[in-house]
Design a protein around this nucleic acid. Structure first.
Lengths: 220, 220
DNA sequence: TAGATTGTTAATCGATTAACAATC
DNA sequence: TAGATTGTTAATCGATTAACAATC
């Protein structure tokens, strides 16, 4: 049982999100124990990687049994901050922005969408699930009032930096960038890119390479 | 001028997609030359990384000037296979699937959506942009007829594996997985995950760490 | 020419894998 | 007990950064 909370490397954090999904499923299926080998197999990893990763968490496994799934789920949620409610706004009410606003998975994982903004006046007022599209000039007021931490950027790439700047000016501390653009931010702000077209391009490249050269592309 | 085409590491491929976006913009702005230092600065990288990355491509820069943007765009497109048209289908006509089917950026980047499938009979026949939602039992016929290479999985996580299996059985060689589920595939098939909720969780974690400890989270 | 910038090699840094003693 | 499985250390592997001679 380790107690120092070491800073977890990014690749490990990315895998922890996968463990959480899988372990949640194991719990639902009433599996009370899971060995590193079984988890690894289920997610295309090695047991060594799994044990190394879980060693960042405040949990101990037991020889011959493995890890207790309920406890593992709890410590994963805790480490990832998945217990906390994260207050989110979406900028851009195009197809993607609207889809995300309606995405039930978000709320289920603790990401609550408080508002969606767009600069197109024809969209203003339109209801998207529980929220209505608002004008950009309302962004500051609402973000501050609702104490929003996270902004999702779903505007055209050419407006991405402007959207980021508006969010940052109103104390948003994290951005999820869905555009192809690179977004500059000050050090206190964290950005994660989730660029679907870039992922498709990566896929196309890997497929090209995989054509003759065997060995699958298990990644991300 | 190197001519051997080395296999490009995944982190490099991911950056190449960013260079392509940026260089396209430089071309449009009539910048004919760009140094590694300028590119690096624009994308939050070091010039060393940029030069190292570009050394995988069939291009030479010139001292004191840098790289010719038009030529760089061309070799990037070529290396990533971005000249080729990629034939795509989407499985799942929920909010996310529909948004992607309408996403103009796809077509512009050479990813043409040939069909969208759903198991919900109430959605069948509904038009989404240029395509209509089809029943799952039509998937095999259409994927084969249109020689589709790539399947985008936008179904609920619990159906992800079934969707993948259906696609793979019909010779699709690449999958973009938008669900939280882990998808098993044979070695000839390549998978890239683009899980938005996982990205949000990663963001939430990095924000937590970034709270006190300074030094920005520039990543992905 | 002098100075800027490339291309590449070597050094550093970090992540993954292997191995194995401890333990249930 | 014997065998399975953990936790951790050490070895390997790969990616990033630094440095610098070559060159325009």
């Amino acid at each position: 049982m380790k107690d120092k909370i070491r800073k977890i490397p990014v690749p490990v954090v990315q895998r922890l999100t996968k463990y959480l999904v899988h372990v949640r499923w194991l719990c639902e299926a009433d599996m009370t124990w899971a060995s590193s080998e079984r988890i690894a197999h289920a997610l295309g990893l090695t047991s060594s990687t799994v044990r190394q990763d879980l060693s960042y968490l405040d949990i101990s496994g037991i020889s011959k049994r493995g890890y207790e799934t309920m406890k593992l789920e709890a410590v994963l949620r805790c480490a990832l901050g998945a217990n906390k409610i994260n207050r989110v706004v979406i900028v851009g009410a195009g197809n993607l922005g609207r889809a995300l606003a309606l995405h039930a998975e978000f709320a289920r994982r603790g990401f609550v969408v408080f508002a969606i903004f767009d600069s197109n006046s024809r969209l203003i007022g339109r209801r998207i699930g529980k929220v209505a599209v608002r004008a950009m000039h309302e962004l500051g007021r609402i973000v501050r009032k609702e104490k929003v931490d996270i902004g999702i950027i779903a505007v055209p790439a050419s407006s991405a930096q402007a959207a980021a700047d508006a969010l940052i000016a109103n104390n948003v501390r994290g951005l999820l960038n869905l555009t192809a653009a690179y977004v500059r931010v000050p050090p206190r702000v964290t950005v994660v890119d989730a660029r679907i077209v870039a992922s498709l391009q990566e896929l196309a490249y890997l497929m090209k390479v995989n054509k003759s050269g065997p060995k699958a592309g298990l990644k991300a």
